[in-house]
Design a protein around this nucleic acid. Structure first.
Length: 555
DNA sequence: GGAGACGGCGCC
DNA sequence: AAAGGGCGCCGTCTCC
């Protein structure tokens, strides 16, 4: 394996590049906290670029960023993980949305989603795969710990940017037109949108009140127990003492056991409350709410193999809602603003209908009626109400039917016997044979990869147990993700600015001025419907949308 | 004492 | 042997 030779480093001459030139750019910051990489923390370290893969131009003063970038304005910019650099560079200059931008990380994820894991997507991994080059990464820690520059560190910064430049040229040779279209039409515009997300305002006082209540309850229950219910090892041990041998102490198991022993219920309760204290406690506020009262998450455009967006530091995609709607009441619109909250109904089942072409399922969706009640009518020959427990069972089946749910799993989930569960599944698939075929096809065709409706590839690894379940589900999940991304892109195009504060898989939350809310609601709804209709033309789409002052004002 | 695996659980 | 998918984060456990 090779290493990159010490580059020629120039810091007295500006690089001037023009249209057609490819300029790799890389930024180093001092003193960044790993969990807050996306926030305006840390101090300017360096900005380096190269247009020929040999000579590196580098500056060490943030005040030079603006003229530095102006000189290469016309060129195509190459980054590895551009949101990091772009987000921080905005602290020293204005960065406008540009299409001439190649992100080697985003491209690699589009090309090799499911083939390589996320931990094999670093610049060092790419330069090893593409160029057989070894790239030293040990300096990252040093940037965190000290502001001192050494010759070695300068060389490291220079080598990084050369690696990016080299990887670009190799990727260019092998990337397919279809992958490039996904990049240009979907992921790159989405990346720019996520950079423009405003934070969400949080009522911190209320939040702390909510979690304080849970803290009290957690303590109460824990005091009654002589072991730590947060430990699976200790919980299993305690249950064994009462005569219950279990291989797992998770909620599903405990729920069954709760009928037989109080202990199971106690462990469950303790976990519910400690979860709220640990994950959604005071620490959450301390860590993530900025001085302006808002939370700024880090949004990843394609961290998930399906191309779903993901969120971290903090993860805004898993804020409690079922048992504790109080948390979402803490997400509030700013003074004089309203939220517009929209979500796609039964989005993945709709894509299942589209992709399987199942006749009966298509009819049900296109009838515009409640699909779960309609399916129940087919299955049981009677009309059930919304509160009938069978509706929840059917929901499980509808969602599970396309990601490989078995009678065993269904039985466990619903508390039915295996025989009952099998009967339900069989009846379901006899009504929707197209769905069954879709499911079985994945196994029998044994595809190298599956695709979303827009053509995003998800590679299968048949050596991994359960690969066929990923194969069934990925086209649905990734198509749904595309619908959401395209809705965002097209809405912002129409509206002219970006008021998005929180996307969540099949849901969008916008914050706009009160007087604009109704207008925005109408445009957003129409946009989402248009996009969905385009992506699943055989299925009538459905979007519910409301205007509110809190996230919880949903339904 | 730190790193990483694991179990568990919040959401869609 | 395991028994719908996708995430991120927490505390515990284990190992060095």
């Amino acid at each position: 394996m090779n290493i990159i030779p010490v580059p020629k480093i120039l810091n007295d001459l500006p690089l001037v590049a023009s249209r057609g030139d490819k300029v790799a750019i890389d930024m180093e910051l001092f003193g960044l906290d790993q969990k807050r990489m996306h926030r305006p923390a840390g101090r300017f370290g360096s900005l380096a670029c190269t247009s020929d893969g040999e000579n590196v131009y580098i500056i060490f003063d943030g005040r030079e960023v603006e003229p530095f970038l102006k000189n290469i304005e016309e060129a195509t910019w190459l980054f590895h993980n551009s949101p990091f650099d772009l987000g921080h560079l905005r602290r020293w200059t204005t960065i406008k949305l540009r299409k001439r931008l190649w992100d080697t990380l985003l491209i690699e994820k589009i090309m090799y989603s499911g083939w390589y894991d996320n931990d094999q997507m670093g610049l060092n991994d790419l330069v090893r795969r593409y160029c057989d080059v070894y790239l030293e990464k040990k300096f990252q820690k040093e940037f965190k710990e000290t502001d001192e520059w050494t010759q070695e560190k300068i060389e490291y910064a220079a080598k990084d940017v050369i690696a990016t430049w080299r990887v670009y040229h190799e990727q260019r040779k092998v990337v397919s037109d279809e992958d490039l279209e996904i990049y240009k039409q979907i992921d790159l515009p989405t990346m720019w949108l996520t950079l423009g997300f405003k934070g969400v305002k949080v009522d911190t006082k209320r939040w702390i009140e909510v979690c304080a209540k849970s803290a009290d309850k957690a303590k109460e229950i824990k005091d009654e127990l002589d072991f730590n219910p947060g430990s699976s090892v200790q919980s299993k041990e305690a249950l064994l003492k009462e005569g219950f041998h279990v291989s797992s102490s998770n909620a599903k198991v405990l729920e069954h056991l709760a009928k037989k022993t109080l202990l199971a219920q106690q462990i469950m309760d303790a976990r519910v409350y400690t979860k709220r204290v640990s994950t959604y406690g005071e620490k959450w506020v301390d860590q993530f709410v900025e001085a302006d009262g808002r939370v700024y998450s880090s949004w990843q455009v394609s961290e998930a193999i399906s191309g779903r967006l993901s969120s971290r530091s903090p993860n805004l995609n898993n804020i409690p809602v079922r048992d504790t709607p109080e948390y979402r009441e803490c997400f509030i619109a700013g003074e004089g603003n309203s939220f517009v909250i929209a979500d796609y109904s039964a989005q993945e089942p709709r894509f299942a209908a589209e992709l399987s072409g199942d006749k009966r399922l298509l009819e049900i969706f296109n009838s515009g009626k409640d699909i779960y009640i309609e399916i129940a009518r087919e299955m049981f020959g009677e009309t059930i109400t919304k509160s009938d427990p069978r509706r929840a069972d059917i929901k499980e089946i509808v969602i599970g039917s396309c990601n490989g749910l078995t009678e065993y799993g269904l039985a466990k989930k619903t508390g039915k016997t295996k025989k009952e569960a099998l009967e339900l599944l069989e009846r379901y698939f006899s009504i929707f044979p197209g769905l069954y075929e879709y499911r079985e096809n994945v196994k029998s065709r044994h595809p190298k990869y599956v695709k979303s409706v827009c053509g995003r590839k998800i590679w299968m690894n048949s050596y991994v147990y359960g690969w066929e379940r990923v194969g069934m589900d990925s086209p649905l999940q990734s198509s749904a993700a595309e619908a959401l991304k395209l809705s965002m892109i097209e809405f912002v195009e129409k509206w002219g600015c970006n008021p998005i504060i929180l996307p969540s898989h099949d849901e969008l939350m916008l914050e706009v001025k009160d007087e604009e809310a109704e207008h925005v609601r109408d445009i957003l709804k129409q946009t989402m419907l248009d996009v969905a209709q385009r992506l699943h033309p055989s299925v009538r789409p459905s979007v519910s949308i409301v205007i509110g002052k809190k996230w919880s004002d949903k339904k």
